[in-house]
Design a protein around this nucleic acid. Sequence first.
RNA 1: GCGGGGGUGCCCGAGCUAGGCCAAAGGGGGUGGACUGAGGCUCCACUGGAGUAGUCCUGCGCGGGUUCAAAUCCCGCCCCCCGCACCA
Length: 950
Amino acid sequence: MITIPSQEFTDLLNEISKKWQEEWSKNRIFEADPRDQKKFFTTVAFPYPNSPFHLGHGRTYVTGDVYARFMRMRGYNVLFPMGFHFTGTPIITMADDVAKGDKDLLDIFRNIYEIPPDVIPKLSDPLFMANYFKEEIKAAMREIGLSIDWRREFTTIDPHFSAFIVWQFSKLQKKGYVVKDTHPVGWCPVHNLPVGMHDTKGDMEPEIGEYVVIFFETKMGSLAAATLRPETIFGAVAVWINPKATYAVVESWGRRVIVSERAAEKLKFQIDVKVLEKVNGSELLKITAINPVTGKEIPVLPADFVDPTTATGVVMSVPAHAPFDYYYLKKAKVSIEPIPVVAVEGQGESPAKELVESSHPKNDADLKKLTEQLYRLEYNKGVMRSDVLRLVKEELRAELSPIAGKQVPEARKMITDLLLQRKAGTKILEIMNKPVYCRCGNEVVVKILQDQWFLDYGNPEWKAKAKKLLANMRVIPEETRKDFEYALDWLQKRACARTRGLGTPLPWDKKWIIESLSDSTIYMAYYTLSHKLREFGLHPSQLTEETWDYILLGEGDVKAVAERNKIGIEALQELRRHFTYWYPLDLRHSGPDLIPNHLSFFIFNHAGIFPEDLWPRGVAVNGFILYEGKKMSKSLRNIVPLRKAIRTYGADVIRIALSSLVDMSSDANFTEAGARAITDNLKRFYELMQMRSGSSIDGTPERWLRSKLHRLVRDVTPLMESMRFREVINELLFNLSSYINEYLEMVRSESREYNNDVIREVVETWTKLMSPFAPHLTEEMWHQMGHNTFLSLESWPTPDFNKINDEVELEHEYHKLLIEDIRAILNVYKGKPSAVVLYVHDGSLNQVVKSALDVLSKGGTMKDFMQMNTPKSKEEARTLQRIMQYVTEMPETVKRLVLSNVNEMDVTRKGVPFLRYKLNLEVEVLPYTQEVRQKINKEALPYRPAILVK
RNA sequence: GCGGGGGUGCCCGAGCUAGGCCAAAGGGGGUGGACUGAGGCUCCACUGGAGUAGUCCUGCGCGGGUUCAAAUCCCGCCCCCCGCACCA
């Protein structure tokens, strides 16, 4: 056999890839138009070009392409288009970072992605960046062999596309799915802009949480104590103030309120705040406050641990449940008895007290740990003590009485509602993981945005439609359906417009830009038309709402629409024809990260805008890619650019490694060793194709190999349909390869040459089966085998059931079992074996074995078997017992052999050449007789010959 | 916290919804051998332990249980990963 060194083969792969990519493109074989043929429309989430592709990006695209290619071979008119997502802020952010000279980023661009030095400065222009990376990504897509119809390419800032988005939002607006509301966001007071994770130092996502503010009346105004545990108000015995901080008396919530000066500043972003006067914290210590629930007068005490920058800078003191409070009260030698509020089984009266006294915290950090521990415990396991009611002031007692015995979460809600209702408290928002800093260095605050536009995914009618869509949609893998159900349920109002970024302005409020996850929900429809819009030379201004209504919904009168928008009737009808041919979308591919957002919006928007018969039919979700066991990340500097990987390993190898090495839903680990294994296996088939020196003898080995091949075709086809690519590749690349080796051994054991026709049949079928995975190599092989059609357009093979030969396969399996048994013996055999004798049972027990099998298959046990056969002697009973045991542990192959009624002696004898070859020993097959039994003192059972090693 | 997914042999990873073909697929790696001028190619054998006979023991996160029989079913526990919004 000819062997090619691996590197040479990789070079060959690259050469072949280039050649066929050019051929495909030149012959436009992936350009699909409506025709009289069943169609399959598939898309993969379009890329966001703010970086070149790395290995990880490749997976979804290749997975989608493998399926597209498969469906094409299954006789579908397949459309696989691609576009580019320019909308939003990340491109701008990235360009900003380049402009600012971000060291890490520049280093990655220069040294990992190998972007030419003269290009890098130009990337500070967002549009240049987007276009540059778009071309870069496109090149990668071509080089990996995606079967895309490139005529339809567009970007989301093309004016035609904007016209389409305007239509989409007008539709949503008219259906009442767009609403106006207020919304809290992380906000930079200097930029005057919302900040997300991308905009903060260290990429911290600002987490917004809610504090309950409780008003403690004083003669200077209400002290606004902020708390996360309002239910402990019953046990508030003092109010903490930081004596070193400045406080402000302000007018807010319709009253005079005392908060820290810093809090007053921040609260301005949430509510109206009018600062009346400023006071030193120490001054406040002179006053006393009233607990609004108990009505008791309590002291205002100094505490350094109170952070004036967090929430209101005023804290209520609950020594029974807050370790800080107990610790500092004790330290200040204030003698106030803690008042327990929450009871936890197995805990003492005053948990904070006990915790502090038993674990001796040394500093605030220790106290913080204790606090978290206690909060968690009481939140999850605590119930409200009933004796707290005694403390409640008269007018609230009746209303609060149900709180006794309630779980903490419920009690919290109850008391909060009461406080709010009585105007004894309110809620404020705060950054929970503070401090979070904007890139400009300022601390991020919470701002409540007024007049924000939302898509109302909480709208019950819309939600119901979305769920219906999901219920009728294919989800691959099926387990992911749960994630979708959860996401659809959970989605509520979602802001759909931003103040900055690239994209389409909201049609009715042009200062807002439609946000990127909102303008990419039904764009698949646009693919069906994009090249036609260009072809007809339509201007965006002609793409009015009614134009789209006609094309996409079939609404309106063609003539009138054509006339008013100065579009030819034929053109309009043609567009409508294209759209209706391709829509609905058959399958959408993406990564799992898009389930709670993009894919769910995709479902919602289709459900909201299109009639049911145009709802998408399926989604497929695949896992991520790891590199040598680790997630690819900037910080690890282990990002592998896709194009580089293609150059190193070859497109086909990368395709297989990305799409088919693990189950769809799991993350795939790309390793150098794994890639090499794929290369070597591909190479083996390529070499196999070049084998030419065989014979034409057509015997058992040939029947066996054909049987294996056709069985494989049969099994692999449904696996392809359900996208179980891992199993397919396992069969095609690894199992089939070992079948061939096995076949060659069988042939050799008969001391003859292999059969040319069989090998050719195997290789030719293999090229077809393998074509979706390794389109370049197989296309080349197909042509080298003398065909002049495109393999990519050939039909998927169908199995010839007549060639699936159970008997031949079973017999061969049995021979292998015999070899295993003999080897097990040889393994412990001392001395040099010269020959093996197999004494085959005469078959007189076959009936009994069959009946034992029958009992077992019906779920019966030894007992049933014994009862059925009623042994007449002890010896017979023993034999029956042995047989039952034997049958219980019997390999499937043997079971089927027993049931097949073939003659065991014949079957065994047929295997002699192969056994000899594999064992490299003389093998003899003889009948098992009484004499033999006495001589070797071993027992034989059906298909378990007595084995003697000499 | 809520929701989802996991913990399998040196590593990666199937199997576990339908309990017996499971010492547990497949790949990687390792060891030995064949081929070869040489091989990082290819092929064969071995790769939990013990054993002069096809067997036995241990074993699929931990601890119990059901069953003639459990990686697979039930109960409890521990640990890991992912998502949780205006951000692509």
